[in-house]
């Protein structure tokens, strides 16, 4: 009886608003995005071995892959980020989060929600994501969460 709700009414609309019109596309082409992301993996590993977690986070949160056709780069960047989150002591998190730029804080929040949305949470420990989420919310507030929900440039 609710079948009418499943009708795609947009097909009858001449002037339909498409998903890709809602945000500016990434100027880089998908192949470049993937190589950029791959090159970050090494740099991040280098920073981590020096114990420079803030530096590693800034690397991975800078111009993250978003939009269609870059699934591989998106997953790779998430894995890189998770490796940073896993190797951070929980006492260091507040200072690291506070030092991030507002843009980087928003991007980090996007990845935290992406991590929580993974089926079975992947190889991510739930308590680690929740700890980061708590500390990040204390610094960036509910506004940061709202921006993750509104932003169509999903990571």
């Amino acid at each position: 009886m609710d079948a009418f709700r499943k009708i795609d009414i947009d097909q009858y609309e001449e002037d339909v608003l498409l998903e890709e019109e809602l945000y500016d596309a990434d100027p880089r082409d998908p192949a470049t995005v993937l190589t950029d992301t791959k090159s970050k993996v090494g740099a991040v590993r280098g920073s981590l071995s020096k114990g420079d977690i803030a530096g590693a986070l800034n690397l991975v949160l800078d111009s993250p892959p978003y939009g269609p056709n870059v699934e591989e780069a998106k997953n790779l960047n998430l894995q890189t980020l998770v490796s940073i989150l896993n190797s951070t002591k929980s006492t260091e998190i507040p200072a690291i989060v506070r030092a991030l730029s507002p843009d980087a804080q928003d991007t980090l929040m996007k990845y935290l929600y992406k991590g929580m949305a993974l089926p079975g949470w992947g190889d991510v420990s739930g308590s680690i994501l929740l700890t980061w989420h708590e500390k990040l919310t204390e610094v960036a507030g509910t506004g940061c969460i709202v921006r993750v929900m509104t932003d169509r440039r999903t990571v």
Binding site: P102, D106, V139, A140, G141, T142, G143, C144, V146, R147, T150, D151
Partner: peptide
């Protein structure tokens, strides 16, 4: 002001747009 919890101030002459990201609700 928009639902991403920001307020934006546009100077059309000086090509500057100032964005304030709020840490509260929109």
């Amino acid at each position: 002001a928009s639902h991403d919890s920001t307020i934006n101030i546009v100077y059309p002459g000086g090509p500057a747009i100032y964005t304030i990201k709020s840490n509260t609700l929109p």
